[in-house]
């Protein structure tokens, strides 16, 4: 449609563009720009070319932080998305399970501080709930310093993350499954298919779009993770749970290295964008393939 004046479309877009450009685009360009400088945020910046990037790619803590967030993302795909899907399958299989769905969503709404304080107490090696439980069942030797042990700290955070977000994916899958036409599943049931078979072979493929989006949210959201890591372990013990975002905050606000931190930001952003674009390309291809 033709606007009644050449300028009206731009006027319509102006407010949104203003906020988006001011709060996101401009600072993003600024971050790229700053990444080529050695800058403490106060004094005169010194142009250093790609030196920050060279340093970032040799920084073992930063490289490890990618590894950690990779583990976190893979673990949460199972603990959040897969469990959410299975729960949704169970909840939609019978009537009367709705209250579970409503209840399991609650942690998503809780402030991270509440969750972290609570779970830090659960994991506390000296007087925590796990220790209390193990003492009670006569197996105190099974107790560990859960958040202080390199083997467990990251997994503990993944576990808590699963505890929070499984209900979120449950809600998404629930609505998706509701949209699967009854006739299809009923027809399959008449043919004698078991309900779990109907779920995996018919329903899950039919809500492909839903779990594709869920995976994307889980992956890109996971890479941006911050609060849980910051409050539960602050990156410790000795960087064992450091993720790119916590390391970035440490570099900028503790070490006062705005330029270096910006280069980390650019690297992380590139990774997220590449994953996003590859994902959408793969998705577009596979969507074509199943079109009939």
């Amino acid at each position: 449609m033709k606007p009644s004046s050449r300028w009206t479309p731009y006027l319509f877009i102006a407010p949104a563009l203003f906020f988006f450009a001011f709060a996101v685009l401009l600072p993003m360009v600024g971050t790229v720009f700053a990444s080529f400088f050695q800058w403490d945020g106060f004094h005169e910046p010194i142009f250093v070319g790609f030196r920050n990037y060279g340093r970032a790619l040799q920084d073992t803590i930063f490289l490890q932080s990618f590894w950690h967030v990779g583990i976190y993302v893979i673990a949460t795909i199972f603990l959040e998305v897969a469990i959410g899907l299975i729960l949704a399958g169970i909840v939609t299989s019978r009537k009367g399970f709705n209250s579970y769905r409503i209840a399991l969503f609650i942690p998503v709404l809780l402030p991270t501080v509440v969750i972290s304080v609570l779970w830090r107490f659960v994991f506390n090696a000296d007087f925590g709930l796990i220790k209390g439980f193990l003492d009670a069942i006569g197996k105190p030797e099974w107790n560990h310093v859960w958040l202080g042990d390199k083997r467990f700290a990251l997994l503990a955070i993944c576990f808590v993350s699963g505890w929070i977000y499984a209900g979120f994916y449950l809600a998404i899958f629930y609505a998706g499954l509701q949209r699967v036409p009854k006739e299809i599943t009923e027809a399959a049931a008449i043919d004698g298919a078991k309900s779990w078979k109907i779920f995996w072979k018919i329903k899950v493929p039919m809500i492909r779009r839903v779990w594709e989006v869920s995976l994307l949210i889980c992956i890109t959201g996971g890479i941006q993770g911050f609060d849980l890591f910051y409050i539960m372990t602050n990156g410790g013990p000795y960087y064992a749970t450091e993720v790119p975002t916590t390391y970035m905050v440490r570099s900028v606000f503790r070490d006062g290295e705005v330029g270096f931190g910006s280069s980390l930001a650019v690297i992380v952003t590139s990774a997220v964008l590449i994953i996003g674009f590859v994902y959408s390309k793969v998705r577009a291809k596979s969507a074509e393939a199943v079109e009939y």
Partner: peptide, 23 residues
């Protein structure tokens, strides 16, 4: 312009918070 907005869908908060803070 639409493309510009759509990039925003994927942009992580890390990509801009450092400069946003300075701004």
């Amino acid at each position: 312009l639409l493309m510009l907005f759509m990039i925003g869908l994927l942009l992580p908060i890390q990509s801009y918070f450092i400069s946003q803070n300075k701004l």
